[in-house]
Write a protein that binds this DNA or RNA. Sequence first.
RNA 1: GCCCGAGUGGUGGAACUGGUAUACACGCACGACUUAAAAUCGUGUCUCGUAAGGGAUGUGGGUUCGAUUCCCACCUCGGGCACCA
Length: 788
Amino acid sequence: MKNYNHKEIEEKWQKKWEEDKIYEVKNPSNSSGQEKQKFYGLIEFPYPSGDGMHTGHLRSNTAMDIICRKRRMQGFNVLYPIGWDAFGLPTENYAIKMGLDPAVVTKQNTDNFRKQLKSAGFSFDWSREINTTDPQYYKWTQWIFLQFFKNNLAYKKKMTINWCPSCKIGLANEEVVDSKCERCGTSVEKKEKEQWMLAITKYAERLDKDLDEVDYLDRIKIQQRNWIGKSEGSEIEFKLVGARLPQEPGSLKVFTTRADTLLGATYVVLAPEHELIEKLKPEITNWDDIVNYIAQTKNKTEIQRTTNTSTGSVQVKTGVELKGVKVINPANNEELPIWIADYVLASYGTGAIMAVPAHDERDSEFAKKYNLPIKEIEVNDTEEGRKKMTETVGGKMVTTFKLRDWIFSRQRYWGEPIPMINCIKCGWVPVPEESLPVILPEVENYKATDTGESPLSKIDSWVNTKCPKCKGSAKRETDTMPNWAGSSWYYLRYIDPNNDQMLADIEKLKYWTPVNWYNGGMEHTTLHLLYSRFWHKFLFDIGVVPTSEPYQKRTSHGFILAENGEKMSKSRGNVVNPDQIIETYGADTLRVYEMFAAPFEQEFSWKTESIIGPRRFIEKIWKLKDKISDVPVENNLEKKVHQAIKKIGDDIETMSFNTSISHMMILANEMEKAEKINQSLYELFLKILCPFAPHVTEELWYELGHTKSIHTDTWPAYYENKIKDEKVKMVVQVNGKIRTLMEVESNMEEQEITKKALKNKDIIKWVEDKDIKKTIFVKNKLINFVVE
RNA sequence: GCCCGAGUGGUGGAACUGGUAUACACGCACGACUUAAAAUCGUGUCUCGUAAGGGAUGUGGGUUCGAUUCCCACCUCGGGCACCA
């Protein structure tokens, strides 16, 4: 037989599969009652960067490709789609630098990515390819935004935002890492800006609770739950008192999770932004100090307030007393002083706390610094204790969340225009749905402005428009959406990618949703994954999608690091290009290597030296074909094949791809020892290998005389009676130490084994002259004599 | 500080619900083939010991006939959160 030529084989079959459309999936026909069961496998669609893909990108795709190929052979109607998450800063920045249109750059990059993905032999249904920058796609992204607006979940708010002076862009909290811009590393500043917000906090409770219903890895659930930050506590009112306060003084509401410590409260603290401060101005005797302090904190972002950026540690606490007013502790009527301090956050709870220095480290630190009293008390830190105290003082139990509303405006060009129009008379008016999409206009200069306005603001002809309501002159919103927008619903569009009436047909959605299995990176757990769950729940509420959760199951892959253990990146110059690996070793080898190198969930360092192992394995499979002859099926080999069918089938379900491959290597070594191999056994081997190495198995399959693709054939079944061993190796121990092994018939009982073992010379020498006090017997595994 | 996860040969790693620790692969050494090299194939490869046997799964304890696996404490590394009251 000719030599294994990966290049020829892989190009040939990739072309043939595309011509035969074997991975294109049909929607169910409405007429027939009996439909194939569906399987929707999903990977995060790539951001087509100018650097091209690196080998790390292929890991998730390969894993899901294996799963989808197995499902197809198991008879499922499999949807495994692909597209491009193409809006975003790197493309815009690159386009600016090179003086190009971002749309042109995107086209180049997606062409390159497509070519790379095709060369790896993934079974994507390319007929459903989508692109978030396509107006026919973002029309529906804009449409969803309008629905949010109409349901009062999108609103404009003047707020201090995290501002990156280098990217000239407002950042969400999630995009700020160590008080630096996630993308460029510049220190984030504070800026006041009117921003569109999405009220994700209204869904906080459900986003937390419904995690119970989905099959996500525990660490993913835990991380989302921590991010949502649900916490049960109490709101308690403290009455205000002051020399000059009127008869009916106001009160101050604090939030606490430890109502039971109320008797230990020695002061209360307001966030510097708390609205009460201004109202109390006439009573306050040190107003200048207060104004000074507030001014100081105003210049800091929340991150600067909370974290010392140079040490990474928590800031030293500062504060100032509000002199002239006091509050009454409702539990014991004691008068307590009021302070303002920026260690209390305005955006959480009520923006005010009761300080219990004896039971809270932060309060303790603050009390010591400002010589405030510390009062030791008896506490009852149980649900009952907290409830009881809350009731006694007329407070109420409340639930709070750490989750904040989502800042949805970006002052950049390369994103979806937010479809809103500002009219002096009517205020914010949505663009009528029939006028969608609001097309992103071409601009001469894509550079962001120093004032923080989007580049779109400079195009008068686009900005100036008519109010859809009163027809008076009005202006378009010039901010664009963040790149999390298009990715929040893309999995729905694959189901019906060309629909121009709605984002996807409800009947098709009923068949295909939810996504059965979604694999992606841990870094998206609190961003994309949470955002898309939020959008999906909203779409469910307005009747657009039929399920309340988008993804039934979520798993996660470990990153592939460069050989030196660092993250792969172009700037570090340590990127391994898959094109070269595929050229030299072939896509099948690359796929097997990536799956074999380490457990799927774990990160690992790329090692080109080690690829030779998987390559030798594939060549071994290739050569085994020469051993095929019409010899009868050999029992031992048949058993090994059936054991492998079971093992590989199970391993794919748990994503234990590394052990699948080692097991197939063992089987290949076993076959190599055989003189001749019956063709049926070899074919079974090809079938369990084909999801991993689709090209070489297809070639061999056809060589064996088949005329239809192995990938449209059936997944083999194993038979329990064929995988059972008739003989087993029993471990014989004395006092827990292994003294010998005995090969015996399987299922032999204790009595017989004991008799046999005690005749064994390796055992006799350890047990003679001793009392056997106890015998431990595990069927088919071991026998252990405990002697005195 | 809090919440996840991980520590096993020279290297990546395996070991099912407590039952032969180091499978599979890389590397290395030796051998075969070759004029030679590459490729390929074969043998060996945790450690001490001539052997019988002993010791090793980050460290120290515990439970058990038996622990990489379960429990407690600690150390190191990776990830997430971080003044959320």
